[in-house]
């Protein structure tokens, strides 16, 4: 019983972090119709910004916004100077379909090697603001700690803020219109270029939070070669696909599903399936419900 509860709690916490990553992927997909494989790399870089803030100012609550702002700035920069140029150049030709994929992979490689050469390949440490020692329930210790509670609450608040932003402002509509039909969006008075940059920045900030939380939720260390980073790399994409790629709610559900499934597989089946489990989940989803759990039907072919 206690094991079941623990598995659930671990899965939900991890899942909420994957959800943030998935939201980042969805935001970029919505604004430019590109799957940004460099998203995890950008999250990595932002986490290092957060780490620097930690070192100098010694407060997690300063480090987190620093990471977010840094992540948003990096994303905006990439969209402004790189993606615009790329999408213009690769609009036609034999590899036009795969050029953005290849380019974001290249970006991932560049960011990885840059962070490695600046901060070294070894782990950096970020300590969470509250303890990660589990609450006790009678004689048992739960796998759920004040830190995990904090992560969960923060993610919920962020997701609510984001969806509020989308529903109560015209921003969500602008983002989608710009993605589906830039020309009609422009004729309707939307500054499409600005909207795209905005979408990327929001994604960058969201990924930054995921990176920071992934670090403190693990053993507090992070590096380009760490398992935490590899997990971010695949989980965001997979969770986003589970959710149908086009929906924020879907991204959250996708993240939670992924987190729970991984957690249960590790606890009840075999811990060596750690890395292959996400892949299998992805395949199952793609085969059984190719439109995602909540998804646009035609998205798969886009």
């Amino acid at each position: 019983m206690i094991q079941l509860i623990n598995t659930l709690l671990i899965g939900i916490t991890a899942g909420s972090i994957y959800a943030l990553m998935a939201i980042a992927i969805v935001l970029v997909w919505r604004s430019t119709r590109v799957i940004n494989f460099a998203q995890a790399g950008m999250a990595l870089l932002s986490t290092y910004f957060g780490y620097e803030a930690m070192v100098h100012l010694n407060s997690f609550w300063i480090a987190l916004p620093v990471a977010m702002i840094g992540g948003a700035a990096v994303a905006a920069f990439i969209e402004l100077v790189f993606m615009r140029f790329l999408l213009k150049r690769s609009a036609h030709g034999a590899i036009s379909g795969v050029a953005p994929i290849i380019a974001t992979l290249g970006l991932l490689g560049v960011i990885r090697s840059l962070t490695s050469s600046i901060w070294g390949g070894q782990d950096v440490r970020i300590v969470g603001p509250v303890s990660n020692v589990g609450y006790s329930l009678g004689a048992n210790t739960l796998a759920f700690s004040p830190l995990k509670l904090l992560i969960l609450v923060t993610v919920i608040v962020l997701v609510l803020l984001l969806s509020l932003l989308f529903q109560k402002s015209n921003m969500g509509l602008s983002l989608r219109a710009s993605a589906f039909s830039p020309e009609i969006a422009r004729l309707s008075g939307i500054r499409v270029n600005g909207v795209r940059t905005l979408g990327w920045s929001l994604a960058g900030a969201s990924g930054a939070v995921a990176g920071m939380f992934q670090t403190v939720n693990g053993n507090g260390s992070f590096s380009p070669d760490s398992i935490e980073f590899s997990l971010l790399l695949v989980s965001g994409f997979i969770a986003a696909v589970i959710g149908g790629l086009d929906s924020l709610v879907g991204a959250v559900i996708g993240g939670l599903v992924l987190g729970l499934v991984i957690s249960f597989v590790l606890m009840y089946i075999n811990s060596s399936l750690f890395f292959i489990a996400p892949f299998v989940i992805l395949l199952i989803v793609l085969f059984v419900r190719p439109q995602g759990i909540i998804g646009a039907k035609a998205a798969r072919r886009a």
């Binding site: 590109v34 799957i35 494989f37 379909g97 795969v98 994929i101 992979l105 790399l233 695949v234 994409f237 997979i238 696909v241 996400p278 892949f279 992805l282 395949l283 793609l286 798969r300 072919r301 886009a302």
Partner: peptide
Amino acid sequence: LTGPYLAGATLA
């Protein structure tokens, strides 16, 4: 699968 889906699946 097409395009990004295949790329992501094979990445995983």
